[in-house]
Design a protein around this nucleic acid. Sequence first.
DNA 1: ATGTCTGCAAACCTTTTGCAGGGGC
DNA 2: GCCCCTGCAAAAGGTTTGCAGACAT
Lengths: 152, 152
Amino acid sequence: MSCKIHAESYDSIIERNWPDGFKKTHQRKDIFILLFCSEEPMSAAEIYDQLNSGDPKEKYAFSTVYRNLLAFEKAGIVTKTVLSTEAEAVYELKKSSHKHYAICTVCHRKIPIKTCPLHDISKFVESSLNGFEITGHQLEILGICNECQKKK
Amino acid sequence: MSCKIHAESYDSIIERNWPDGFKKTHQRKDIFILLFCSEEPMSAAEIYDQLNSGDPKEKYAFSTVYRNLLAFEKAGIVTKTVLSTEAEAVYELKKSSHKHYAICTVCHRKIPIKTCPLHDISKFVESSLNGFEITGHQLEILGICNECQKKK
DNA sequence: ATGTCTGCAAACCTTTTGCAGGGGC
DNA sequence: GCCCCTGCAAAAGGTTTGCAGACAT
């Protein structure tokens, strides 16, 4: 498990972000740190692979990954997103509040879109859907990223 | 297999919309008619169920449904969409050119949005994603439909 | 007659669940 | 010590694939 952030600061990061009354197992801390360090949302398989790529004495079960992602989600610190281009769901910490992605159809990179271009879409749509009460939305931008364009 | 349209017009509908050189099996015609008559995009399971709900002498395999939906998609007359709220993909004929839905989170109804509110989003997003070439997008509106609001 | 399409069954992939043992608090 | 969490294995959905026979052209 590697990250740009110094190992000694992991504890304080966890301390600051941990949900109240949430049991601190080493599996949960490891998943949290992985998500914290990742620039992109991660799938359960990616998390599982990274967890098990380290010391082979440490084993992590797939079910543990899924159950804890769900637990994190319920605790309100993780967001699960299902993208139309991928078979698997992806997960990320809520801190970064990225809700939308530009997805490269070649390399499958997921680039967060900082601002949401939909803030005033609601009135527009609501008027044409008589009575439909909007509670959320999902937006994906598909295309070809900078690097993949160069490769061609 | 029932539909609002009179049975005698099925043949001409198929004649008009059938891809060139695409073999006309009764399974394919039936799937096509189902999609043609549906107001909402359908999942493979929904198509399968409707196909097999008729004369029990007529059997349709799941693989036939999937293979033909894929074949239709390759032939350019069907669109497959993966929605974030559903485990299954949904399929529809391209004719109606519905690309976006308002999805009721209670009853899972999928209401097509006639106009695309994203026609001028591209410049906006492209400028913040240096070099990302946009080729498409997916938008979902989530909420509670008229009927489900009344039920509460 | 040819090659494609079909049904059946098995495989596949992601995710969920049951259970017995282990580890936080 | 209690209860929640973990690992393992099996199951559960949705989708894909291999194969032998059937059908459209």
